[in-house]
């Protein structure tokens, strides 16, 4: 291998040798993108907090102590403020910081799992429609149109209420509902790649459709897939929060950010921090995921590659 490298280097001009390698250029694009770095940093922090929730939590998130209920967070000047409960306690005297940390786990697990399920469904039907076209495309288009015409939140709520709520049910219901954007994007991305010459060449040498899909199409639509995956994960997290807020998502006493806001709804006029803390957490998580998605789109866009 080293030998071919030398031979190739011998044929390159001085400028080409001195120019940064493709990998270095990619690294420069990634690290030079402010939004991507900011979003990635915050997201990494939240993931770490979720992973280490058991270690970082100062208290048991389920431990109720009515004697210490509704302690305000540290920035308040109330005499009740204590460093033992940095972010205060809720209406049942449960430590808010511990619940927030464990709530991050719930959001991330549901968001990620629902994204994987919807990603598999949407990618499979989208790629098939884009590659085969014709009747397959028509059928897939019909399925997508039908799915889009049904209101997501309403159907999710109805199904959860009929089946009964649990973490698994919420994941499956969301996963089976939000694959539409995957399908739409993967369909058009596949259509684009399919019309390129290397696919025609692969067909000409007699490659099977399965081989073309896996080795020619898949690597070239991957960047679109990753971008949609991040955006849909954010979407799933927001939907879970909305379901939990309406009382049909994650069930108490499990700490979920949406549920925390729901439980604090009646108290928000007196203790507004009860809704602002989980609300800001939710906002930061979704914002960071969206920033990562937008950043990856910018970085992987072909016009930036030269």
């Amino acid at each position: 291998m080293a030998e071919t490298g030398v031979v190739r280097a011998g044929m390159m001009t001085a400028e080409e040798i001195l120019a940064p390698s493709p990998g270095a250029r990619l690294r420069k694009r990634i690290f030079g993108h402010f939004g991507l770095m900011l979003g990635g940093g915050v997201l990494l922090l939240i993931i770490l907090m979720a992973l280490l929730a058991g270690v970082l939590s100062p208290h048991d998130p389920y431990d109720q102590q009515l004697a210490r209920k509704l302690i305000p967070p540290f920035w308040h000047t109330s005499p009740k403020v204590t460093w033992d409960h940095v972010l205060g306690t809720d209406h049942l005297g449960r430590d808010y910081l511990s619940r927030l940390l464990h709530g991050a786990q719930v959001s991330l697990i549901i968001g990620f799992a629902a994204m994987v399920i919807s990603g598999v469904i949407g990618t499979v039907i989208g790629v098939l429609a884009g590659y085969f076209g014709g009747r397959v495309d028509m059928a897939v288009n019909f399925i997508i149109t039908t799915r889009l015409s049904m209101p997501v939140v309403l159907v999710a709520l109805a199904v959860v209420s009929i089946v009964g709520s649990s973490l698994t049910v919420v994941i499956w219901v969301l996963g089976l509902l939000i694959w539409d954007r995957f399908a739409v994007v993967m369909r058009s991305a596949t259509q684009q790649v399919r019309s390129l010459e290397f696919v025609t060449a692969a067909e000409a040498v007699g490659c099977s459709p399965a081989r073309i899909l896996l080795t020619e199409i898949a690597p070239n639509v991957m960047n679109h897939l990753i971008v949609v995956a991040t955006l849909e994960m954010a979407h799933a997290i927001l939907l879970e929060a909305a379901l939990s807020f309406l009382g049909l998502g994650v069930q108490p006493p499990t700490p979920s950010w949406g549920l925390m806001i729901s439980e604090a709804k009646g108290l928000m006029y007196f203790d507004p921090w009860l809704i602002s803390i989980p609300g800001v957490a939710l906002f930061l998580l979704v914002l960071s995921i969206n920033l990562v998605g937008d950043g990856l789109r910018d970085v992987s866009a072909p016009e930036n590659r030269s």
Binding site: G35, A234, L238, A241, A242, F245, G258, I261, K265, M268, Y269, P272, I275, S276, G279, L282, F283, L284, V286, L287, N290, L291, D294
Partner: peptide, 22 residues
């Protein structure tokens, strides 16, 4: 626009109530 899309609608609604209503 990026900030707006990250705000959960129910939380945004409650925040509006808190500031403009209360």
């Amino acid at each position: 626009a990026v900030i707006g899309q990250a705000m959960p609608s129910f939380w945004f609604a409650l925040t509006l109530i808190l500031w403009f209503g209360v």
